[in-house]
């Protein structure tokens, strides 16, 4: 009992914070079930009949459906390549000793500090010259490139924890370095790889500015850009119902993802920073 009262203050504070996080989401969800006029004029009324057609319009007319598919396509492929390519680089940087190791590591380190928008104009023109504007392939390549620095450093930390003996044993058995990497290191680093994948999944799924610049054709746009377009459309229509429904729709996949991977996501996010 003593303990409970001691923690009362902590609980109060945290409940308040939780409300601040969850109430806005709840309010938008309730409003997303109301017709547009009611949203503007009676913001605190409860929906009488759930206006599910808001969701249908957001999904079809608002283009969230196609944006959803595009985002899945882009995100899955991007994350796959990020993890493979980063793991290869991290393995070399963690395990091998060679002349330019520090220089290469520092080059990647700089990338942690480069905000994507700095070279916005040259990047766009480069992609244009390569014919990669308005192409998912182009967006994926840029996503992978910009995600490498963080993921490489996260994975170096993981590889550093794997004892050298296992690998040495493999080499004695006649495994070449590439085979040793595939057969020994990758399976051992699996938890790290999964954490990296989950962490990047969220980042790529939510990415907005690069997609905004590099994809302008409607059928190619990803979910965040489609969502921003719905907001832009409100300048010429009065469909707030679809806007609110769109917000909720964009929450659903990440919430499901979060419920499944919550623990790994939180651990993965902290791994790179804390373990070193």
């Amino acid at each position: 009992m003593n303990r409970a009262t001691r923690n009362l203050g902590s609980h109060l504070l945290l409940i308040l914070c939780s409300l601040l996080i969850l109430l806005p989401v709840l309010w938008v969800f309730i409003n997303s079930l109301k017709p547009s006029a009611a949203i503007l004029l009676e913001p605190f009324s409860l929906p009488t009949v759930p206006a599910l057609d808001n969701y249908v319009r957001a999904w079809t007319d608002g283009g969230l459906g196609i944006g959803f598919l595009n985002s899945i396509f882009v995100t899955v492929i991007t994350v796959f390549f990020i993890v493979i390519i980063s793991a290869m680089a991290a393995y070399a940087l963690s395990r091998k000793r060679f002349r330019f190791r520090i220089a290469i590591q520092n080059t990647f380190l700089t990338g942690l500090m480069l905000p994507t928008f700095l070279a916005m104009a040259p990047l766009f023109l480069l992609m244009n010259d390569l014919g990669l504007v308005n192409s998912h392939l182009g967006l994926i390549a840029v996503y992978v490139a910009y995600s490498l620095p963080f993921t490489i450093f996260m994975l170096i930390a993981f590889f550093n924890q794997i004892p050298h003996t296992l690998e040495e044993a493999a080499t004695i058995d006649g495994c070449g370095p590439i085979k040793a990497f595939w057969k020994i290191m990758l399976p051992l680093a699996k938890p790290g790889l999964i954490s990296a994948a989950i962490f990047n999944f969220v980042g790529i799924w939510n990415e907005y500015i690069l997609a905004l610049i590099l994809l302008s054709d409607d059928p190619l746009k990803t979910l965040p850009v489609k969502l921003a377009n719905i907001m832009m459309r409100q300048q010429y229509h009065t469909d707030w119902g679809a806007l609110y429904a769109g917000i909720v729709l964009s929450f659903i996949p990440v919430v499901i993802f979060y419920l499944i991977f919550q623990r790994r996501l939180i651990e993965g996010s902290t791994a790179g920073a804390v373990k070193e």
Partner: peptide, 28 residues
Amino acid sequence: MKKVGMLFASILLLAGCNAPWASDSSGE
């Protein structure tokens, strides 16, 4: 190992173009 290689190859193939549902409505 083999499985991963297959996945890798098929993803590369898939990534060669835009998402399949997006390609037919964009112009050419």
